[in-house]
């Protein structure tokens, strides 16, 4: 039998309180070396706070965490060399060029010529930064800025990478590029913890942790999370659309109804029978014309909504 992969991150009962507000509430999980681990949850769920603790930037109130075998509360200095951290607002110097920013961060991590120059050129190629290498980062668009920020965060080749919403405001083509790079880094052995609100991105993670109000509410592979969803899914093309949504959202057998593109997507309680007739009846009563009803496949968004649902308001900060 092959050895179990070593753990890059071990979190036990990690807790953070700000006065009487519990931002992170006894979180426990383990991330294996080379794993792409996704962190999902509503805005304000405690994801960024957890990452800050794992980077040694915030002291836990309770519990403990080891990153690369180092205690995040006590071995902060040694930890810094082992990790790359890209916060939601990464500080680039706006009056320095892309390459000058890279040089600055390289200097912080003690990289010296000639290896510094080689490393920077490698990143310019990997992140396709040639076109903006001499441009002041203050004048870059969000997508470019995020690319330069990611390059800065990995300049010292950290074995463990924390990315907090790295693709926020980044267009689809560049998002693909980001995630290809994340996948490549993981294939080379880098461990990646990444937060995102986009379920298509979450699908690319090996495992996902869902956090709500500071607590871990689910932890599994994307496939297992989808398989575990309660209820049956139907997709309905109807005319008019909005009354169809309203009628189904208020039907008692419907657990969840939403628009997905120009289709109404509903999740209904499983009763061992097809619920198509019930859906048709509810829509007929609302004088909605049904164009098509078909069975739907569970998506990660369905899982997210079913676990977090309407409780978002109460938990948000």
């Amino acid at each position: 039998m092959a050895d179990a992969p070593r753990a890059a991150v071990v979190v036990e009962d990690l807790t953070k309180r700000f006065r009487d507000f519990v931002a992170v509430d006894h979180l426990s999980f383990t991330i294996a070396e080379g794993e792409v681990f996704g962190f999902l949850g509503p805005n304000g769920a405690g994801k960024s706070t957890t990452i800050r603790m794992l980077c040694g930037l915030l002291l836990p109130s309770e519990g403990r965490a080891q990153v690369a075998g180092l205690d995040v509360a006590r071995e902060t200095e040694a930890l810094r060399r082992q990790i790359g951290y890209m916060p939601q607002l990464f500080s680039l110097y706006p009056d320095l060029t892309s390459v000058e920013n890279l040089e600055f961060y390289a200097g912080l991590y003690g990289l010296r010529q000639p290896s510094l120059g080689t490393r920077i050129e490698e990143l310019v190629v990997r992140l396709d930064l040639e076109a903006v290498r001499g441009q002041l980062t203050g004048t870059l668009s969000t997508g470019w800025r995020q690319r330069v920020a990611l390059a800065c965060a990995i300049i010292h080749e950290p074995p463990i990478l924390f990315l907090d919403e790295p693709t926020s405001g980044v267009d689809p083509a560049v998002r693909q590029q980001f995630w290809n790079l994340i996948g490549d880094l993981a294939a080379e052995g880098t461990t990646v913890l990444v937060t995102t609100h986009l379920m298509e991105e979450a699908e690319r993670c090996a495992r996902l942790a869902m956090i709500d109000r500071g607590r871990l509410i689910a932890l599994d592979t994307p496939q297992a999370l989808r398989d575990g969803l309660q209820g049956l899914l139907y997709e309905i093309d109807a005319d008019p659309l909005l009354p169809a949504l309203e009628a189904l959202a208020s039907a008692p057998f419907v657990m969840d109804a939403a628009l997905s593109g120009a289709t109404v997507r509903v999740r209904v309680a499983e009763m061992g029978i097809s619920r198509e007739a019930a859906i048709r009846d509810a829509l007929a009563a609302a004088q909605v014309n049904v164009v098509d009803i078909r069975a739907g496949e569970p998506s990660l968004e369905d899982v997210f909504i079913s676990l977090v649902g309407d409780r978002e308001e109460a938990s948000a900060r």
Binding site: P42, N43, E165, G169, H197, I305, E312
Partner: peptide
């Protein structure tokens, strides 16, 4: 909806 979670996005 930039940076907004799926529930709020809905």
């Amino acid at each position: 909806t930039r940076g907004v979670d799926p529930v709020s996005r809905r």
